[in-house]
Design a protein around this nucleic acid. Structure first.
Lengths: 248, 248
DNA sequence: ACAGAATAGTGTCCATCAGATACAGTTTCT
DNA sequence: AGAAACTGTATCTGATGGACACTATTCTGT
């Protein structure tokens, strides 16, 4: 199960996440010293996810990796949803330093985000459904919005622009992960997958002529595939720039 | 478990999906008549997911809803992953008819896709990880690419443009689902959630000044929030149009 | 110094999940 | 008529997330 069980009370569940992600968490004065730490647990869980996807992260396995029992983890984390929330925020890491200028800034921001998704592909599947943003995630948003602060965009437009760029990075990372276009991980399996898509199409070019034609023209143009990652982002930035009036 | 278990053999798993989604599936001549059908199973599973999210879909429950045993479903579907693949393609439905002109076309396409995501929010979480596209999903891609066929974009660029637009719709639907901005479903829970984000920010405006400022200016401008759904898409279309030369 | 309270980790238990396998009943082809 | 192929069922396994009771540890108030 991944997270959207029907027992989630829409907010009661999130309370734990909010406290864990944002709360002070001072150690109580009485009682034995904790032998574990939130950070160690989170790190271990991330390592498991990096190696085998989100499905490889279970309380048992995380605990086993740390030589503890499963239930001991629940002294640190109220439940698995909260652990995943911690994993997400920790895997995001600190937002990058951006260069001057909103356009260069957003470009660098998108690149850094792409790197994160490549390093932790499970993030693509984890960050789904209603969630509470953690400090790092909000920090990423902050740096991106800050890059747009002096562009004349309204506050809402700034937020929308960030949603557009991050959505694009995410979409591209998804395609990259499932079809192996331009991904450093594009080893055999993904290429087989892309081949399978082609295989689906060859007998059906009549039903999907536009896609077939587009794919065919892509195959011949290896250089274009290298630019694929940039194309969409540059169009988005163009659109934003035009909207600002092109002056900045 | 949702799908990224480490036992997935990268393609062996997908074979079943390919056959189910694309294969002919003629009924064998001998043996009892099947009392169920793929379509009925899929429909039931979608209804469960619509009502309670993907987590509410288990083989047990689907079977129970149909008054059959869990294992009987495996006569129709090789596994849960394949069922989810069927659900996705079925929930997508037939692609929409688009109006003339690539820009109007893509706008309508994005709107239709948004409607689908609103109707089946679980799609946002289901369509993650390496998957095989079904006929309907590929059909959606086909209509979008077809709308761009006469724009002068290369095949690769057409595909990239579609990825951009669909990624944006997806990103927006996600925000919409988790923050309730402009969503028809924006009832109490999501508003509470948005309020919670604000609440997080009020004490921390020093750490996230740009986001705080942007959010503050948004609150005052209810009209802007209604335009939020359009803003990003129009910027993307602007960017594409500029790249084409603005002539068409 | 000492008793009680709060805490940490453990062991046991439960419902649920996806799926394997063996089997009984049904239909059709030879 | 009989074998072959198929459908739905019953039973079982191993794993999951989590509840709960229990022991061991550590600090606080006396």
């Amino acid at each position: 199960m991944v997270g959207e069980g029907e027992k989630r009370s829409v907010f009661g569940d999130q309370t734990g996440s909010v406290e864990l992600l944002w709360g002070g968490r001072e150690r109580p004065s009485r009682g034995p010293r904790p032998a574990l730490s939130l950070e160690r647990i989170t790190r271990t869980a991330i390592a498991l996810a990096d190696a085998g996807g989100l499905g490889a992260v279970s309380m048992q396995r995380v605990a086993g990796e740390l030589d503890f029992t499963k239930m001991s983890l629940y002294r640190y984390v109220p439940g698995k949803n909260e652990l995943v929330a911690l994993m997400i925020d920790s895997a995001m890491g600190e937002p990058p330093q951006l260069p001057e200028g909103w356009r260069n800034g957003l470009r660098a921001w998108a690149g850094a985000l792409t790197t994160v998704y490549h390093r932790h592909p499970w993030l693509l599947g984890a960050a789904t459904g209603p969630r509470v943003m953690g400090p790092n995630e909000l920090g990423w948003t902050e740096t991106a919005v800050a890059a747009l602060a002096d562009t004349g965009l309204s506050g809402g437009e700034q937020l929308d622009a960030v949603v557009v760029v991050s959505g694009h990075v995410r979409a591209l990372a998804q395609v990259s992960a499932s079809m192996g276009l331009g991904s450093a991980r594009a080893t055999e399996p993904e290429q087989v997958m892309s081949a399978a898509l082609n295989e689906l199409l060859v007998g059906r070019a009549d039903r999907y002529p536009a896609v077939a034609a587009a794919l065919a023209s892509t195959e011949a143009d290896a250089a274009a595939r290298d630019r694929a990652n940039e194309f969409g982002l540059e169009r988005i930035l163009d659109g934003l720039e035009a909207y600002m009036g092109g002056s900045r």
